[in-house]
Amino acid sequence: MEEKQRIALALKRKRFFLENPIVIVDYDVGNILSVSKALSYLGYHHIVSSKPEDIQRASGLVLPGIGAFYEAMRNLKSRELCSVIKEEVLNKNKPLLGICVGMQILSDKGFENGEYDGLALIPGNVRRIPEQEGFRVPHVGWNTLEIISKDPLFSLIDDYALDDDKKEELVNHFYFDHSYYFECDDKYVLAYCNYGQKLAVAVRFDNIFGVQFHPEKSQKNGLKLFRSFFDFVMNHFGSLNNSDVTDGLQEAKRC
């Protein structure tokens, strides 16, 4: 992309998200700082909040999470956020990205240390990764994906790169750290990861997205995912308005 176009796009993002910030939902389940830092680095204005009024004026929502299913759901309930989130996401079609346990709670039920209800936003259950020879649990480290659908999460990710011997190498890896996985119908799956069996690691139901891995900890692949997802949020919220781009270019010339 040319320098001028890049500056114009950056200005467009800045203006859009200042008026319609992304909200990182703060429900005391870790990890907010890293997501926030990634968004700041990429130039997306956002707020960290657990207030319903903030969630209501958000352009998009992020449900981060490190921890156990039960605690995550309990914290959401105690902050009375379940209905607000459902309202925004189901009735107002707001894009939502759940990360790790934030993705797992989108399910119907989670079976970590008991049986607990999830938000039931994407049909599926969360079960323990089965123990298998050669596949230690928790599944922790960098693993590659089998991407079924590139847009809008993986559109900037290169699946392959040439290694030193000019052979194609699969490089669409992300950082995982989990013992439980999202079990659901294939039609919701955007990407699988092979770990003894095929695990669904990126899921989607309309405007609701979930990723099992941590984009905020996945170096450049993770940043690229955030870039394509939040640009999607910007374009999803209002239609892509050509005059915005022209205005941006004018302003870029003045800088």
Partner: peptide, 22 residues
């Protein structure tokens, strides 16, 4: 040794050391 990917749906190779920088 770079391993050939087992899954027939995905071509290419993989190394157990992941490149993470430009």
């Amino acid at each position: 040794a770079v391993k050939d990917l087992v899954d027939p749906n995905i071509k290419g190779k993989e190394s157990i050391i992941r490149p993470n920088s430009y």
